[in-house]
Amino acid sequence: MIKNLDTAYKVQGIIGILVVVFYTTQGQALASGYGFFVGLVNVAMLQWTFARANKKAAEDPKAGMLILYTSAVIRFILLAVLFVLGLSYLDQSEAFPVIITFVLMQIGQLFNLKGKRRLTD
């Protein structure tokens, strides 16, 4: 399974694990772990959507783009709900590790754009 993952997803996972380990030493493992979970959900949905869109685009390019646009809206709503649920459960002081872990994991997605002219390449 690990061999099939793209470099960008490996980088995101490594970044997430390193941030969780750092925040574990600070006593905020649960908050950072939740940020890691939200990041993994986003990455998994993004990977699944791109695979689905590429498959559909072979038949109908407009349908492939529609899948990408719909996915963006769904992921935005899902992430908002996950953040609200998680941050309402955690203490107010634990919000920062959740956000930082998620954001740093998403920076790893830049490695996925390397050598591409379009997002769907």
Rank of each mutant, 00 (worst) to 15 (best):
M1E: 15
M1C: 14
I2A: 12
K3P: 10
D6C: 12
T7C: 09
T7I: 15
A8V: 04
Y9F: 15
Q12R: 11
G13N: 08
I17V: 12
L18N: 04
L18E: 00
L18S: 11
V20H: 06
V21T: 05
V21H: 05
F22I: 11
F22C: 04
T24G: 11
T24V: 00
T25G: 14
Q26D: 04
Q26R: 13
G27Y: 05
G27R: 03
Q28K: 14
Q28H: 07
A29P: 05
S32I: 03
G35P: 05
G35N: 07
G35D: 06
F36N: 09
G39E: 14
V41N: 08
V43I: 12
A44P: 01
A44V: 04
L46F: 05
L46E: 05
W48L: 10
F50C: 00
F50Y: 03
R52E: 07
R52S: 08
R52N: 03
A53G: 09
A58H: 01
D60V: 09
P61F: 03
K62F: 01
A63T: 05
M65N: 07
M65Q: 10
L66K: 15
T70V: 00
A72G: 15
R75Q: 06
R75S: 10
F76L: 12
F76P: 01
I77Y: 03
I77F: 10
L78T: 13
L78H: 04
L79W: 04
L85V: 09
S88H: 08
Y89N: 14
L90E: 00
Q92L: 08
S93T: 11
A95W: 13
V98G: 07
I99V: 14
I99K: 10
I100G: 07
T101H: 01
F102Q: 06
F102M: 12
F102K: 04
L104Q: 07
Q106Y: 08
G108H: 03
Q109M: 14
Q109G: 11
Q109A: 15
Q109Y: 10
L110W: 04
F111G: 03
N112L: 12
L113Q: 11
G115L: 09
K116L: 09
D121N: 11
D121R: 02
